[in-house]
Nucleic acid binder design. Structure first.
Lengths: 192, 192
DNA sequence: AAAAAACATTGAACTAGTTCAAGAAATCGT
DNA sequence: ACGATTTCTTGAACTAGTTCAATGTTTTTT
């Protein structure tokens, strides 16, 4: 039994010990080194990952080879390329560990079994989806309407731990600015 | 019975005539004039709207009073402020008709009844959510990594009808650029 | 059909953010 | 503890996009 994830699940839906045990039996535990690519674009993503410990980035590489960071995830978060996972199509995204991480994997078939056996998990995943949605909308809004300095301040305010664990040039790629410019922003802020 | 929405639903999930009839009984039809505000930030959004006919925008107004257009929707699309709707919290978004529109409304309680009575609708709404998610991710990627001209070209390619029905300055607000700059881009493109 | 309102274009001056190149600082693997 | 790789900073020259103000065009209202 994996206590972290069980706590996570219990917070969102009401569930019995037995059901939790079944859920846990579907998970695969893996300890993964730093900088390991867990998914590369083109492959079908056959997992959703829950992070017990560690840090992961999800990113996209555009036609010019430029990396855009979409998400950083740490303890108690989930990551996946959901479009690929749920439609069994080739992934557009890359997923990579940034630190040595302890992860729980659930694959497509297991998730289907889970939904069939314990329908309340549908709700859990729908809630997760809804939260992702909101986050994306907020991010889109600030990307469209706010200057880089504000976006950076928002970021460190919202994700204080992440901003210390993730290298700066990746944060720049997340904010949609060059690493150099982020450095200049930081200088400007430190002077105040 | 509303044939358009029934066709939409039947495409996504398998459903009986009887069930469709029940679903239709929960919908409220409204014909709405041009430029009517259907939701304003601060109110709780108690509807999801299916568009039979017409055109709608969803937008955000930031601290400086600047409008950011998040979605344009036309026939056979749904709109709502989902965060507000599903958590019964004050909306952050505005929803407004751009043309005279024929709409179907479903409210929170009716949606709950619907899910209770016909669980396959859960799947339908989850699929819709997933699609929204993908769209948002793609949009974020292009907003972060592509220059305005490309974003505009992508937009007219992806939404050829919308780009002709929606005023240009709103498209600019959607792309995250000034109306003037969009005008300059269009001039540039027309010369080629 | 005229007047008003909303929408689109243009140019000039400006600013936020980029690119390139080089060097400094930190961290990693053995 | 070392060199090697990765990360961070800085400045100079540049470019994409903004703002403002004025003018032109289309659509709506009466």
């Amino acid at each position: 039994m994996y206590k972290e994830i069980n706590k996570y699940v219990s917070k969102c839906i009401s569930i019995s010990e037995q059901e939790l045990a079944y859920f846990n039996s579907l998970l695969k535990y893996k300890k993964v080194k730093k900088k390991v690519i867990l998914l590369k674009a083109g492959d079908v993503c056959d997992f959703e990952i829950y992070i017990i410990k560690g840090c992961i980035r999800v990113f996209y590489i555009d036609e010019n080879g430029i990396e855009v960071d979409l998400f950083f995830a740490v303890e108690d978060w989930w990551v996946s390329d959901l479009a690929s996972f749920s439609q069994r199509t080739p992934a557009k995204l890359f997923i990579q560990t940034l630190e040595e991480s302890e992860l729980l994997f659930i694959d497509f078939k297991s998730k289907e079994k889970l939904f069939a056996k314990i329908p309340s998990f549908e709700k859990l995943f729908r809630l997760m989806l809804q939260r992702t949605n909101e986050t994306l909308i907020n991010r889109l809004i600030s990307n469209i309407s706010k200057p880089a300095e504000e976006r950076y301040k928002e970021f460190i305010k919202k994700y204080p731990t992440i901003s210390q664990r993730v290298p700066q040039h990746l944060i720049a790629a997340y904010l949609g600015i060059s690493a150099e410019f982020l450095s200049k922003i930081r200088k400007r802020l430190s002077k105040k």
